[in-house]
C-alpha cells in the first residue's frame, strides 16, 4: 500500500488549498470506500485531507422550508433525523437500505455521493478498465456485467453509480454545494454527475479538488408522500439490483406532481423525466405507472447479463407508485 500523509485542515479554505497544491491529494470522509480502494491500489493518493472535523456536520432547516445537510453528516445520523424522517421519507429509506449499520455510522454525505462504482473490473488492477486507467479498455462490456448499466452507457464504460442516497437526492432536485479553488458554487444534482461517454474517468462536472460542503433540499411538501424501494440479491447488505425513489402528489386520483429516479441502471442516479412526463396530469393507475416505466426504459440497451433490470425496474416503479397512491 502506498505510503501517504495525513492532513487535518482547520477550515474549508485550507482543505481546498491543500488539494489545489497537491496533485495527488484526496479528501477523506468516513473512508469506507476510499481506504478500501487504496488497499487495492485502485486509488493511490499521497495526502489524505480529513474533512470529518470540519464544521460541516449539521442538518439545518432553511427559512424557505428546505433542508441543508452538511457534507460530513454521517449516513446513520441523517437517516435518524426527525425532519428527514417526516418530510423526506424517501431519503431516510434510501439511507437505511444501504450498506450495514457499521458502514452507515462511518459514511458521510459527501463521501456517499462520490463513492466509486462497484464494477468488479474497476476494483481489480489486473483487469482492463477505462475508468481506472483511461485507454486500457472496458473489461465489463463483454465480461461479467450483470450488475451494470442498461441506460446511457458508452463503449468505454458500462458502470453504474452505486449510491442509494444519490438516487433519493436526484428525485428531490437536490442542490450540491461545493467549494472550489475559486470559491463556493451551487450545482443542481441533475448536472452534477456525468454520463460515461469517452471519459468515464470523469464522474462529476466539478473541478478536481472541489469539496462538497453540503447538499440542499428544496422545499417539497409532496415529499412527505415518498418512498424508496430497493431490490437486492439478499435480504440486506447488498447493492441494488434495482431501485426507485418516488415522490407522488395526487389531486384526487390525478397525478399533480411526481418525481422518479432509478438506481442501478446508469452511470449516474437516473432521473426518470420521461416517466414523470407520462404520469403528470393523468389519473393514476398501476397500468399508467407501467406505461410510464416503459417510456423511460424504451431506449435501454441491456448488456449480456442484465436484461432482467428492465422488467425489474418496471415492477418496482409500479409498486412504489401504487403504494404511494394508496397511502
Amino acid at each position: 500500500m502506498k505510503a501517504f500523509r495525513y492532513h487535518r485542515p482547520a477550515n474549508v479554505a485550507e482543505a481546498v488549498a491543500v488539494l489545489a497544491a497537491e496533485p495527488q491529494a484526496a479528501y477523506l470522509g468516513g473512508g469506507t470506500n476510499l481506504v478500501d480502494l487504496m488497499k487495492l491500489g485502485v486509488q493511490r493518493p499521497d495526502v489524505l485531507v480529513d474533512v470529518t472535523r470540519l464544521p460541516l456536520d449539521t442538518v439545518e432547516e432553511l427559512p424557505d422550508g428546505g433542508l441543508r445537510i452538511g457534507a460530513t453528516v454521517r449516513n446513520s445520523d441523517l437517516a435518524a433525523h426527525p425532519v428527514v424522517r417526516r418530510a423526506y421519507p424517501v431519503l431516510a429509506r434510501a439511507l437505511l437500505a444501504a450498506a450495514s449499520g457499521q458502514l452507515r455510522n462511518m459514511a458521510t454525505t459527501g463521501g456517499n455521493l462520490l463513492q466509486r462504482t462497484r464494477c468488479v473490473y474497476f476494483q481489480d488492477t489486473g483487469k482492463a478498465c477505462n475508468k481506472r486507467e483511461p485507454g486500457s479498455g472496458c473489461a465489463a462490456l463483454h465480461g461479467q456485467n450483470r450488475d451494470l448499466a442498461v441506460l446511457d452507457w458508452s463503449e468505454q464504460c458500462v458502470a453504474t453509480h452505486p449510491s442509494d442516497l444519490a438516487v433519493a437526492l436526484a428525485a428531490l432536485d437536490t442542490v450540491v454545494e461545493v467549494h472550489e479553488a475559486d470559491g463556493p458554487r451551487d450545482i443542481p444534482i441533475a448536472e452534477f454527475y456525468r454520463s460515461p461517454g469517452t471519459h468515464p474517468e470523469r464522474e462529476t462536472t466539478v473541478a478536481r479538488g472541489a469539496l462538497i460542503t453540503a447538499v440542499r433540499l428544496p422545499p417539497l411538501p409532496a415529499a412527505r408522500r415518498s418512498t424508496y424501494l430497493k431490490v437486492r440479491d439478499r435480504a440486506s447488505f447488498a447493492f441494488a439490483a434495482g431501485s426507485v425513489a418516488a415522490v407522488l402528489d395526487l389531486d384526487g386520483d390525478v397525478v399533480r406532481d411526481v418525481r422518479l429516479a432509478y438506481g442501478a441502471v446508469a452511470h449516474r442516479p437516473w432521473r426518470a423525466y420521461r416517466a414523470e412526463e407520462a404520469l403528470r396530469g393523468r389519473p393514476f393507475s398501476p397500468e399508467l405507472a407501467a406505461r410510464a416505466a416503459d417510456a423511460e426504459l424504451a431506449e435501454a440497451r441491456p448488456l449480456r447479463h442484465n436484461g432482467f433490470k428492465l422488467p425489474l425496474t418496471r415492477a418496482i416503479t409500479v409498486r412504489a407508485l401504487t403504494e404511494l397512491a394508496s397511502s
Binding site: R118, V120, D124, G143, D233, R234, A235
Partner: peptide, 29 residues
C-alpha cells in the same frame, strides 16, 4: 440462493472476489 463464483474466461479467474460481490447468506436471510 446466493453464492456464485463468476469466472471471466478471458482472465481465467473469478471476478467477484470479495464479500461485497460474492454474496453469502446473511442473518437477515
Amino acid at each position: 440462493l446466493h453464492e456464485e463464483g463468476l469466472l471471466d474466461e478471458r482472465y481465467g479467474d473469478w471476478v467477484n472476489h470479495d464479500l461485497a460481490t460474492y454474496h453469502i447468506t446473511g442473518c437477515a436471510d
